[in-house]
Amino acid sequence: MPASIRPTKLADTIVDRLETLILEGSLRPGERLLPERELALKFDVSRPTLREALGKLTDRGLLYSGRGGATHVASPLGEDFTLPLADLLHRQPGSTADYLEFRAIVEGSASYLAALRGSDVDRELIHAGFLKMEAAHQQDDPTEEAEADADFHIAVYEASHNVVMLHFMRSLSDMLRDEVFYNRGRLYQRQGVRELLLAQHRAVHDAVVAGDPHGARAAAEAHIHFTREALLEIAAADARLEVSLRRLASDGEVRPQGDAWQ
């Protein structure tokens, strides 16, 4: 017997719509929604209906109320995922190398899939992301360049059209921005590294935009391996510096510096 056909509750339709936007990454963690009044107008529903929908999404952990009563998009994986990982990385030396090994695996496949599946819109976004990186590079703004770098990789994950991978990698990217894994500033400040990083991103960009999956995988893996090598170099240089400082400090004048990973 066919089930009776009833219209879905308006609030539930809005919940479904917003959920889909969050899952596919069109609504991004941290983004602030329009004020209730404007949202209600957009959906053409009453404010109580809208409020009911937002309430349900908040209960599900997909939205949260920020300062001034504004509603923000939450990170679906959330702190349950990132906090234990951050803790692990602080406690375990060498886990930065593990992070980069993991990144090389995912980055290679993500770039492969992006080259295979990316739509013309995805390719335009990746191109725009790269241009932003290039501009920051020319203006000699390492902070801006590091941000554009992270955004570029997110654009590649989005173009891979795998939402599970997208959410995991977005969480890791946010941790990267918080410098949980390593100090990006130190990486960018190192002589010659910035030029090489830009050239590597250009190679990934070119292969993805050209729709060359194997080339994209190779370029992405080479990029992450280079990053790992560069960070190892920095750590080794720091270790050498520390030895020199310790020699000097036998006079009790100078404090040794910290670990490059931190």
Binding site: R60, L62, P76, L77, D80, V164, H167
Partner: peptide
């Protein structure tokens, strides 16, 4: 209450 699990 696993937000991500419910979303998927």
């Amino acid at each position: 209450t696993d937000t991500f699990a419910n979303l998927l």
